[in-house]
């Protein structure tokens, strides 16, 4: 187990390739998933420890989003196993994953435009009064507002309708919704896409904070600098499989891009890709 302090200087998880299995809060192996004739996952394996940030990297169509959707219960894999805290689990629905403490920020944000910020945050676990099925809107709005303010990404009033929010505010709400209920695993699919420079920094800071709380974080992003800033380890996806595992502090952008490109016999293209990526 790694203590949070060790992460402060940029990630220092020991580069063990085969740690003890019960170390993992989440362990998925050999996941396959096809959509019609398109094989999105061809035997992907992933393991995540509590209190680490795992960056999942890959080109478009490499299977990153499908992989995390199987972990959050949105998509049922055709084959493969998922262990949560050492126990075999089958997610029949997102509700099942959520009840175990696996929270996800989806790329498309997955908010209900017509509901208020507070109602979005509490959707599925509404606050009610006196145990009756009676919404406590005031308490939800107040609590949501305070929570968003504590997160400090962007200021958002709790009773505003999401339709009237800016892209950055929506992103903040989506992130808040995922971290609000003490997750054990937090999955972030492009959480910084709609944000400005300052807000991105706030989200990355938030990732460090939840990691310090012992949460296992999976981060998908196109921004290479985010990976180096917060990730302890990287999992590189290529054509539906996990092609490589890297420890962030021991790797280089060059090596990452090399694996994103498929990882073999592409010496010339490697040089070109690095130029365009950096």
């Amino acid at each position: 187990m790694v203590t949070p302090e060790e992460h402060e200087d940029g990630g220092s998880v020991p580069g063990l390739d085969t740690p003890e299995p019960d170390d993992f809060v989440l362990q998925a192996s050999d996941l396959t998933k096809s959509f019609g004739s398109v094989a999105a996952l061809r035997g992907a394996t992933l393991e995540l420890r509590a209190g680490e940030v795992l960056g999942v990297v890959g080109d478009n169509g490499a299977g990153k989003s499908t992989l995390i959707k199987t972990l959050s219960g949105v998509v049922a894999p055709d084959r493969g196993t998922i262990f949560f805290a050492g126990e075999l689990v089958h997610f029949s629905s997102p509700r099942a994953a959520r009840s175990l403490g696996i929270e996800t920020v989806y790329q498309d944000l997955a908010l209900c435009e017509h509901l208020t910020v507070a109602r979005n945050l509490y959707l599925g676990r509404e606050l009610t009064r006196h145990g009756l099925p009676w919404l406590d809107d005031r308490r939800m709005a107040r609590s949501a507002e305070q929570f968003l303010e504590r997160l400090g990404i962007v200021a958002v009033p709790g009773d505003a309708v999401v339709r009237n929010l800016s892209g950055g505010q929506r992103q903040a709400v989506a992130v808040a919704k995922a971290v609000a209920f003490s997750p054990r695993v937090l999955i972030l699919d492009e959480p910084t896409a709609a944000l400005g420079v300052r807000e991105v920094e706030q989200v990355l800071d938030l990732v460090r904070r939840v990691r310090a709380d012992g949460v296992g974080v999976i981060l998908i992003t196109h921004r290479m600098q985010d990976l180096f800033e917060v990730c302890d380890r990287l999992l590189i996806m290529y054509e539906g499989t996990d092609i490589a595992r890297l420890t962030t502090k021991n790797t280089t952008l060059e090596e990452i891009v090399y694996y994103i490109d498929g990882g073999s016999g592409r010496e010339h293209q490697r040089a070109g890709s690095i130029t365009s990526a950096s």
Binding site: S72, V74, S93, P94, R95, R98, S99, T104, Y106, L109, A110, L111, C112, E113, H114, L115, R119, L123, G124, R125, E126, T128, P133, W134, L135, K177
Partner: peptide, 25 residues
Amino acid sequence: NKTPFGMRLVAVGSNPEATRRSGVN
């Protein structure tokens, strides 16, 4: 207007997939 059920009706009409992902059946 005042129950979780009513609120979820609006949610599912607004964004069915997001509502499902939020853990609503």
